[in-house]
């Protein structure tokens, strides 16, 4: 395998009994890229992502993440990635500062670094100081979601995995959320994002369309639209899902 890719996967497969959730997928992701993983619910997006995060051992195939093997080096992988899941991933009964301190803490950030990061984040998210001592439960979802993303990259990982990060969020917040993703990508973080919002696919550098555990198509949104002769990604998806 070549070293200029940050994620490489070759025939990666995951079976649960007789059911093949992920069927021999192969792809590679360049550093700093925003790589979209699209598909209907149950297409195997989350399972594929879990394997790459070291949460689930593949049944067969090869894959490396940040240069580490997904079978043997899951601990090293975990140190180099950030993760945000479709379920809200912060603690409602802790304050904003406490959440930041906790996630910084489990990633081993030093005290001074934590303090610096906290100030930076509060400033970035424009959270007024009066709110930092409040429990998270009292904050609007949009803020929480943006905070969750910031916390996922607090330790400056090489790659951040986002599992349907914008579920249940209003369009404006979604737009702001994508601005943050671009910002992270600009800073050199590779973004691996799953979604089933087809308009979000347009924001990715490259998109892989998953159908029934296989990658049906993989290219830039522009090329995909051209190839399938479609006006937007939604049409592309419909055509792929119907088998053209």
């Amino acid at each position: 395998m070549q070293n200029n890719f940050i994620i490489e996967s070759e025939n990666l497969t995951k079976k649960f009994g007789h059911f093949t959730a992920v069927d021999a997928i192969s792809f590679s992701v360049k550093p700093g890229e925003i790589f979209g993983f699209l598909g209907a619910n149950g297409a195997g997006k989350t399972t594929a992502m879990r394997m790459l995060c070291g949460l689930s051992i593949p049944t067969s195939g090869k894959a490396t993440v940040a240069g580490f093997d997904v079978y043997k080096q899951t601990e090293q992988i975990k140190k180099n990635i950030g993760y945000m899941s479709q379920k809200f991933s912060l603690y409602d009964d802790l304050t904003i500062t406490e959440n930041i301190n906790f996630y910084g803490g489990i990633y081993g950030l030093s005290k001074s670094k934590l303090k610096e990061k906290t100030e930076y984040l509060l400033d970035l998210l424009k959270i007024p100081e009066m709110h930092t001592g409040k429990l998270l439960v009292s904050l609007p979802l949009g803020w929480k979601q943006k905070l969750a993303f910031s916390v996922a990259i607090i330790h400056e990982p090489k790659i951040v995995f986002l599992d349907e990060p914008t579920g249940g969020v209003d369009p404006i917040t979604r737009r702001q959320f994508w601005d943050m993703i671009y910002e992270a990508s600009h800073n050199g973080v590779t973004v691996f994002v799953t979604t089933h919002y087809m308009d979000e696919a347009e924001y990715c550098n490259r998109v892989s369309m998953m159908v029934d555990g296989r990658i049906a198509s993989l290219d830039t949104p522009y090329n995909l639209k051209k190839e399938y002769n479609a006006g937007n990604m939604h049409e592309v998806f419909v055509k792929i899902a119907r088998g053209r």
Binding site: G54, L55, Q86, S89, D92
Partner: peptide
């Protein structure tokens, strides 16, 4: 239940 277990498992905490 809250889904935070995933986050913990993905973190370097074993």
């Amino acid at each position: 239940e809250l889904g935070t277990m995933e986050i913990l498992l993905v973190s370097p905490l074993n």
